[in-house]
């Protein structure tokens, strides 16, 4: 599977038009439906290659697009979500500098 290829499991004659937000591999229990004890085993079953990670991020992006950006009468929510996401991302990125602004020595 190189760049720009479809996932191996995707078969146009079975699945129809390609949906970038859909995972075409075998279905596992949804993460939100797991019990706390099953989380470890669930992560054990996940693929941990860079391609799989990139695929997961891509699907997540497209799911977000389908849910919030593409609807016909979408609101301002996706802009706020992007802004808040960006705030968190850059806070984490800058944490090493920001932590010097702490107001208290002891917690």
């Amino acid at each position: 599977m190189g760049f720009g290829d479809y996932p191996k499991e995707y078969n146009p004659s079975v699945h129809g038009p390609y949906d970038p937000a859909r995972y075409y591999g075998p279905q596992d229990t949804k993460f939100f439906d797991l019990k706390l004890g099953e989380v470890g085993a669930w992560f054990g079953r996940r693929q941990k290659t860079p391609q799989a990670l990139a695929g997961a991020i891509s699907r997540c992006w497209w799911r977000w697009q389908h849910n919030y950006v593409h609807p016909k009468r979408t609101g301002i929510a996706p802009f706020f979500q992007l802004a808040v996401g960006g705030m968190v991302f850059f806070y984490v990125l800058n944490y090493n500098r920001l932590k010097h602004h702490k107001n208290y020595k002891y917690h």
Partner: peptide, 18 residues
């Protein structure tokens, strides 16, 4: 078109704006 994801009319519901 049976497997095609339909374009929703409204976005997924959100609380407090986002």
């Amino acid at each position: 078109n049976s497997n095609r994801r339909p374009r929703p009319e409204h976005p997924s519901p959100v609380r407090h704006g986002f």
